[in-house]
Design a protein around this nucleic acid. Sequence first.
DNA 1: ACCTGAACACCGTTCAAGT
DNA 2: ACCTGAACACCGTTCAAGT
Lengths: 238, 238
Amino acid sequence: MVQVHVAQSFGLGCIVRTMYGSVRRTDDTVGRMARRQEVPRETRQTLTRADVTTAAIALVERDGLDALSMRRLASELRCAPMSLYTHVHSRDDLVDAIVGRLIERLDVAPNEGEPWQDAIRRMLGSYRDLAVQVPRAFELLALAPYDSSPVAPHLGVALAGLEASGLEPEQARQILGIVDAYATGFLVVWARSRTDGRAAAPSDAPASGIADLRDLETFDRGLEALIAGLDATLVGTR
Amino acid sequence: MVQVHVAQSFGLGCIVRTMYGSVRRTDDTVGRMARRQEVPRETRQTLTRADVTTAAIALVERDGLDALSMRRLASELRCAPMSLYTHVHSRDDLVDAIVGRLIERLDVAPNEGEPWQDAIRRMLGSYRDLAVQVPRAFELLALAPYDSSPVAPHLGVALAGLEASGLEPEQARQILGIVDAYATGFLVVWARSRTDGRAAAPSDAPASGIADLRDLETFDRGLEALIAGLDATLVGTR
DNA sequence: ACCTGAACACCGTTCAAGT
DNA sequence: ACCTGAACACCGTTCAAGT
């Protein structure tokens, strides 16, 4: 007899649910499922800031931005709401942690000898990819203030990259601001419309996939128009 | 002796504060102020949806978007929270009412024989003006979904105007989407940064006014670049 | 038709207390 | 250091009741 001992006393840390890596199920007899024990194993280990951040992003992607509350996140992590405050100063700090996690995925590092147009395409390409991958959490990054702690350094790197491509500092600032405004406005509205059913649909790939593709094509077209226009009116005329 | 009778019984409607139309005060002696009775007159009259909407916008501009709650708005109007539900179905409906009020101020009516570039400049100029005038409530309009009840008809009018300027329907749709994305992204971030002190400062005109002007110049420059680029890559090549 | 208080199921966060 | 329950001051909204 297998005895699963679930300790419930204090100070032992939250229960972190360890998922099996998507076990395929080719038959669905009820008896077999029970025999296989396809129940998520629950291992007890101490919670970290990374755990909290990961769970928060998963919660947002599953249930939407409105579902991101300290209490709900705690119940997701099977711990008391106040336990979160050991790893996160406040709800705002939690959002900063999420933004920090997402911003890492952006490609802003400068490339040797790259024209500024290509640098912009590369940066905004990764921005667009992020909107595709995490459409609901994306908004937290997209609308985060420029001077928030996770955003500011990445902005500095991006600016330095543009200057390395030969733009004047003031040109780089304006161009990045303009291009970022375009991408932010486009992608936030796009991501919202894509996830407007309040909960995430399990599989909406084929039909709406075409509409998505189409809108992202418009995104790319607008970006090319913007780059061409900036080159003609801001850079070329110097 | 002037007797001010403030009825407090039921069913007589909320107290609506009627402001004097910005009475100039060239002297500020305390005694005089009292003698003049420059206290807002409080007249009892029945509340309307328009009253609720007006008060909501004023509340948002004074205390920020986070302050927009049914309970707080009710206390602002000196009535019970539940009284608001006579005029507004829900908080979301209240936001729709605000968006509807703001969107009226946009200039989207088509002009006879106007090139599409000028139509875009006119529409986005009024959009930018709105961000200047109501920077905190602006976000509600800017990020409202395209298919929300107050937004959809105005979008239709704007599209018709662009088509009247000679654009193909598909061109008009793409161009409006791209240009709106740019303006939305730019102005939302701009408006947020302008009002980041959580409460509105009483008079921050001179110093930050220069920075504002500068950023709005960048907005206009970006718009011109975008129009030029769209003309070259989307319209001109046909 | 319009307004109201009590109640319900939520929030973020402080505090004192546990291990 | 990490976790916890109780408590406080908030939310939006339903419901039954008042005029």
